[in-house]
Amino acid sequence: MRPGMTRRQLTAHAAWFGAAVTLTVVGGEVTSHVAGGGTAAAADNTTNLRFVQISDSHLGFQGTANTDVVGSFARAIDQVNALPYRPEFVMHTGDLTHLATPAQFDQAKQMMSGLRTGAVHTVPGEHDAIHDSGRTYRTVFGAGSRGDGWYSFDSKSVHVIALVNTFSLEKLGHLGADQLDFIRQDVAGLSSDTPIIVFSHIPLFAMYEQWGWATDDAGQALSYLRRFSSVTCLNGHVHQIFTRTEGNVTFYSATTTAYPLPHPGDSPAPTPVTLPAGALGAALGIREVRHVQGQHNLAVADRALA
């Protein structure tokens, strides 16, 4: 439950959520899982996929909303490393840095090298492309990717697609023709019962277009995924937990390790929010995700920063 959010407000917030998504509040943590999908803490075996999403660390940010973004990012990494299992991978969904300097990218890479996981993956945020259209980002994090940094891979029984919608944006996120063609070709040979997970920085649904919280050509990208029985899209950018289901696609926006942003319509602009003393940790966090082979839906648990 976010700071200052009553259970009535949480219920209203959940009205945006798909009817099949259940929210559980335990010890200040919001756990969401799809009916029949179990929880992220359920029993596991070698055929199941477990991974962690981290987002919006903004290394280099200076402001009252968080005077120690390096420290909070380090605590997030420690929290991942303290999990009672080793995640198959950790995905950072962008804005690793605040000003896209080489020093900030180096610091992000060095810190994430301490994650105890099978692999570390990233997608870029718009803050990772300041001044150079993402060239420094691709130099540090683009190995093995295509185009502006998009790529895909398989993990256990799941197909993962990592997209870039922050390098050609104007008001809204944008994928572009080359990347859309990549998506089409990438999934063409997959069986329709293959679970698909898509990562991006900016949401692939219209969360709040007035603030640029949408991707203008996401509809075309999603049209290539309509035939799959299970599609999950996970994004960062908005610095808050939000879930929506549209047909076979469930969208999850993640919280941040840096600072909160206002909720849509609560402020004239999405500027960093300075919370009362002691309240910041509850607004930051990491996300655990679990997929059980043979089930369509993912179990998602959003954990407040310890």
Results as ranks from 00 to 15, higher is better:
Gly176Glu: 01
Gly176Trp: 00
Ala177Asn: 04
Asp178Cys: 08
Gln179Gly: 02
Gln179Pro: 07
Leu180Lys: 03
Leu180Gly: 06
Leu180Glu: 08
Phe182Lys: 00
Phe182Ile: 00
Ile183Ser: 02
Asp186Arg: 04
Gly189Leu: 01
Gly189Ser: 01
Leu190Phe: 10
Ser191Cys: 06
Ser192Ile: 12
Pro195Arg: 11
Ile196His: 10
Ile196Glu: 09
Ile196Ala: 02
Phe199Arg: 02
Ser200Arg: 01
His201Thr: 08
His201Trp: 10
Ile202Pro: 05
Leu204Phe: 14
Phe205Val: 15
Phe205Thr: 14
Phe205Gly: 03
Ala206Cys: 11
Met207Tyr: 15
Tyr208Ile: 04
Tyr208His: 15
Glu209Cys: 11
Gln210Glu: 13
Trp211Arg: 03
Gly212Tyr: 09
Trp213Met: 07
Ala214Gln: 01
Thr215Phe: 01
Asp217Ile: 01
Asp217Pro: 10
Asp217Cys: 07
Ala218Met: 00
Gly219Leu: 08
Gly219Lys: 09
Ala221Gln: 01
Ala221Leu: 02
Ala221Ile: 00
Ala221Thr: 01
Ser223Pro: 04
Tyr224Lys: 02
Tyr224Asn: 09
Leu225Lys: 05
Arg227Cys: 11
Arg227His: 14
Phe228Ala: 09
Phe228Thr: 14
Phe228Lys: 13
Phe228Gly: 05
Ser230Val: 03
Val231Ser: 04
Val231Asn: 07
Thr232Tyr: 11
Cys233Glu: 08
Cys233Val: 15
Asn235His: 15
Asn235Arg: 10
Gly236Ile: 06
Val238Phe: 08
Val238His: 05
His239Tyr: 15
Gln240Asp: 09
Ile241Lys: 13
Phe242Ala: 13
Phe242Leu: 12
Phe242Thr: 09
Thr243Ile: 05
Thr245Gly: 03
Gly247Ser: 09
Asn248Pro: 00
Val249Gln: 10
Thr250Ile: 11
Thr250Ser: 00
Phe251Glu: 00
Phe251Met: 03
Phe251Pro: 01
Phe251His: 14
Tyr252Lys: 00
Tyr252Ala: 01
Ala254Val: 14
Ala254His: 13
Thr255Tyr: 00
Thr257Asp: 08
Pro260Tyr: 05
Pro260Trp: 06
Pro260Met: 00
Leu261Val: 06
Leu261Asp: 02
Leu261Asn: 08
Pro264Cys: 11
Gly265Pro: 03
Gly265Glu: 05
Asp266Glu: 15
Ser267Trp: 12
Pro268His: 07
Pro268Phe: 04
Ala269Leu: 15
Ala269Ser: 15
Thr271Met: 11
Pro272Asp: 10
Pro272Glu: 10
Val273Ser: 07
Val273Pro: 01
Thr274Ser: 13
Leu275Trp: 09
